[in-house]
Design a protein around this nucleic acid. Structure first.
Length: 768
DNA sequence: GTAGGGTTAG
């Protein structure tokens, strides 16, 4: 009690703690102070430093402030005490006090400068650290090995290449670059983080005594910049030199093994890791999981995962990514639920990966729930999670939602731009795609191969032939990057579908070793235009490359059918029979109240078949009023015209939509239709007209209400347009709501008739 | 009293 009283007298704030030991310590400390205060001559530098040491050991800011006050009072705030006190403040975690005292000191030890710099870097305040370092030099204090080994990290984190180079120069002058491995490895790491691997390697070669940290920094650099070969080479040399790899090295080199998909080396490294006793270190084991997954051995990844007692956020995410990259999206989604149940929180990596799974499966409802999680974690403006949400909505046909999420992003890069452009492209909104492409360039973002492919796809799906040609030629002439076969295939499709078949064929021949996709694209275009002769040339090439290609036989048989060459159809079908081909039946499915309903043409096994047929009959009549003309060219069997029309009515797409409309109420504005094959041209036109029917439920006996509909498709590869709208407003509105335009004369007639019915003065150019 | 390297994503 006496001590507490004394403390109060001395204006000291003390905390009465239940722990006896703490009270005892406190009392001893106070006794010391009081004794020294009474007996002034015994307060000297040594005793002050000893007191400060106690502050450090107890991590007590209160005591440090108390000693500080005494040091001032007794005029002892000199070099030793002052510098030691900054250390105490720093260890107590109080940067305000530390910095204030540090700035007030008449002179600072190098060690204090270093501590301050290191502290700022540890707190992520890299600019502050660099400023302090510059001030130190300007005050005539030369940096030492400690200063350099810290400060290079600040330059690399800020991406200050020139500053980093300048500091590197200074370390050379002071002889620290080569002689000190701490400095050397920090420089290597810095250049590696800048992606300047040549410079990193040169420095590493110069450092006198190489150790595992230095070489690991080099390996990590090569791994992260995709140079697996060099990473493996450095690793091999390291082992030969007798330098043992540690958990950091294994974590990185296993990623390289996965990247180069070299299972034998991966297994060898796994063996080394076990031999080193580092198999259970979390980060290395996580890399092991990734290595097996990238080598395609997902079961081994699962085995590694099951070995974790308490998988962390990164391990869980690695597992999800492994599953998704091995085509097991559904399993990944169920594992994600497991992760959440085990109270491991997802981060941006996790959510963007899971969203990727939802996008691939077009699972909009689950995707929306994950979007909600993204918002809950404040990641909706994060460029990774945010752009994954953009991709989700884009892939599911909700371009407006995609755009609204896209607009909220803080930072744009080429990937987020590509997602948005692709979303416009696949939903047939070509002009918006092109607009965004120009905006991207205005923002100074360099388009890449994917961007160009997306814009070309947009041109395909919106019939913007001239725009597509212009872009293709400009890239070809610019030679900023090489156009791939995919770009060529896109152009062949664009030209071919609008009837410029000769140009398309020339383009195919321009490609060195044209592949299956290119010839098949040309073949498809030939099918649209009934161009048998060129088709046969393309067919020869396709069969040379892939004699058993089922799709091609089907395509060719369909071409002969649409050209009315029934003899060849019979011949083709018999070849297919001989080769035991079976055409995949076209299927469509819709999800209503979490239940999936699947339909096939001519299959009446669905319990509601009768009602579906009634609804469909009514819908077809309504759509006919809008100008629907059944396009019997899509009937590939030899039958009379009336039979052909009837067979078109019962396509699986139409059955599924009729069913969905019966089962949903007025609140449903969107029906998502999934298909295993490309939608047929007739259904395509029919669906587009359907989206403009406005039928009220009470108008008929049937529960029909279609106001505004978007049809998201699993296979949206229906491409190319030969139709172009002109200024007529109604057509513009219509085009905006359309998915794609495809190029059939029947559709042109449909559009004209619709425009007429709606009272619009439309002019339509048909490009053939 | 001060210092260097790792694993997951769109």
């Amino acid at each position: 009690m006496m001590m507490v009283g004394l403390a109060k007298l001395l204006n000291l704030a003390i905390t009465i703690n239940n722990t006896n030991l703490l009270i005892i310590n406190h009392c001893r400390f106070l006794t010391f102070i009081v004794q020294n205060s009474i007996n002034e001559p015994s307060f000297n530098n040594t005793s002050m430093c000893s007191l400060i040491q106690q502050c450090i050991e107890n991590k007590s800011l209160t005591k440090a402030r108390m000693v500080h006050a005494h040091a001032i009072k007794f005029g002892l705030l000199g070099l030793n005490v002052g510098n030691k006190l900054t250390d105490a403040y720093l260890k107590c975690g109080c940067i305000v006090d530390t910095r204030k005292l540090f700035d007030e000191l008449p002179q600072r030890y190098l060690i204090s400068w270093n501590s301050m710099i290191s502290y700022y870097i540890g707190q992520g305040k890299c600019k502050e650290a660099i400023l302090l370092c510059k001030r130190m030099v300007s005050e005539g204090v030369l940096p030492d090995n400690f200063t350099f080994s810290s400060v290079f990290k600040a330059f690399s984190e800020l991406g200050f290449v020139n500053g980093g180079r300048e500091a590197h120069g200074m370390s050379i002058v002071l002889g620290l670059e080569v002689l000190n491995k701490f400095v050397g490895s920090a420089i290597v790491d810095m250049y590696a983080k800048f992606g300047k691997m040549k410079e990193a390697h040169v420095v590493a070669d110069r450092v006198m005594s190489k150790d595992v940290v230095l070489l690991t920094a080099l390996i990590v650099g090569y791994t992260q910049h995709g140079d697996g070969e060099k990473a493996l080479k450095v690793f091999g040399e390291m082992i030969r030199q007798g330098i043992n790899a540690n958990e950091y090295t294994f974590a990185s080199i296993l990623i390289t093994c996965g990247n180069v998909e070299d299972l034998s080396i991966g297994k060898l490294v796994h063996g080394l890791m076990v031999k080193s006793g580092l198999e259970s270190v979390v980060a290395s084991k996580t890399s092991l999981l990734t290595m097996y997954s990238r080598c395609g051995l997902i079961d081994d990844s699962l085995k590694v995962f099951n070995n974790f007692l308490c998988p962390n956020q990164v391990t869980w995410t690695s597992l999800l990514v492994a599953l998704i990259q091995n085509g097991k999206e559904e399993v990944a989604l169920s594992k994600f639920k497991e992760m959440i149940s085990s109270s491991v929180l997802p981060n941006s990596f996790t959510l963007s990966s899971v969203l990727q799974a939802c996008s691939s499966l077009a699972m909009l409802e689950l995707g929306k729930q994950i979007h909600a999680m993204v918002m809950k974690f404040g990641l909706d403006r994060d460029k990774y999670a945010g752009s994954a949400v953009v991709n989700l909505y884009g892939k599911c046909g909700s371009t407006e939602m995609a755009r609204s999420v896209f607009d909220a992003l803080v930072e744009y890069d080429v990937v987020s731009m590509n997602f948005m452009i692709y979303s416009y492209a696949q939903n047939g909104i070509g002009h918006e795609a092109i607009k965004l492409f120009h905006k991207m360039k205005e923002l100074g973002l360099e388009p890449n191969e994917v961007t160009i492919l997306s814009v070309l796809l947009a041109c395909n799906n919106a019939g913007l032939v001239e725009e597509g040609c212009q872009l293709f030629d400009s890239i070809k002439n610019n030679q900023r990057f090489e156009l791939t076969r995919d770009h060529y295939a896109c152009m062949v499709n664009l030209l071919g579908r609008c009837g410029r078949l000769e140009e398309a064929e020339v383009l195919v021949k321009q490609v060195r070793n044209p592949d299956l996709v290119l010839w098949r694209t040309l073949l498809s275009a030939c099918k649209i235009h009934g161009e048998v002769e060129m088709a046969e040339r393309a067919l020869k090439q396709v069969l040379d490359l892939s004699p058993d290609d089922e799709g091609t036989h089907v395509l060719m048989s369909n071409l002969y059918a649409s050209a009315g060459n029934w003899n060849q159809v019979i011949e083709m079908k018999s070849t297919m029979r001989e080769m035991k081909f079976k055409k995949n039946p076209a299927m469509s499915w819709v999800e209503i109240d979490k239940e999936v309903h699947t339909f096939m043409a001519g299959d009446w096994s669905h319990p509601s078949s009768k009602e579906i047929l009634d609804t469909l009959g009514c819908l077809i009549e309504k759509v006919k009023i809008l100008g629907y003309i059944p396009d019997t060219r899509f009937v590939l069997q030899n039958m009379d015209e009336e039979e052909k029309k009837r067979s078109l009515y019962y396509h699986s797409e139409k059955l599924a939509i009729a069913f969905a409309l019966r089962k949903t109420n007025n609140k449903t504005t969107t029906i998502r239709l999934f298909k295993n094959l490309r939608v047929c041209g007739d259904c395509h036109s029919w669906i587009k007209l359907m989206s403009h029917i406005k039928l009220l439920r009470n108008e008929t006996q049937m529960p029909l209400s279609v106001t505004k509909q978007t049809f998201g498709m699993r296979d949206q590869s229906v491409g190319a347009a030969v139709l172009r709208s002109d200024q007529a407003e109604i057509i513009k509105i219509w085009l905006r709501n359309l998915w794609h335009l495809d190029g059939t004369l029947a559709e042109a007639a449909t559009i004209c008739k619709t425009a007429e019915i709606l009272g619009a003065k439309a002019r339509i150019n048909i490009i053939l």
